[in-house]
């Protein structure tokens, strides 16, 4: 049977996790920030979610800095469609 204390803790977790996005985006009020941080300080589960979510977003933002390479064949076809074949090396025309 779930104790009242455990039940309240789980409710706090749900509450914290529902505000996590706003917290990460810096859109949470100072009061809620303090409450959330106080919860994170004592709740290992929520802290893990927060840490791993932050790491995920850190990596995703890194993708912005270096877009995937455009495949050469796609680039050649684009130049052809745009009637820019004079810029395509002769062997690839």
């Amino acid at each position: 049977m779930i104790s009242q204390h455990q039940h309240r803790h789980e409710n706090d977790c749900q509450e914290v996790l529902s505000h996590l996005n706003d917290y990460i985006d810096g859109e949470l009020s100072p009061e809620l920030c303090m409450e959330l941080e106080a919860h994170l300080a004592v709740c290992q589960d929520c802290r893990v979610v927060f840490d791993t979510l932050s790491k995920t977003l850190y990596l995703v933002h890194k993708l912005r800095e270096s877009p995937p390479e455009l495949p050469e064949t796609v680039e050649y076809r684009l130049f052809a469609v745009m009637n820019l074949e004079q810029f395509v090396p002769k062997k690839r025309k």
Partner: peptide, 13 residues
């Protein structure tokens, strides 16, 4: 036009 494509096509893709 070639310059624009070379510069921006990777991000657009």
């Amino acid at each position: 036009c070639a310059c624009m494509i070379k510069q921006y096509a990777p991000r657009v893709y």
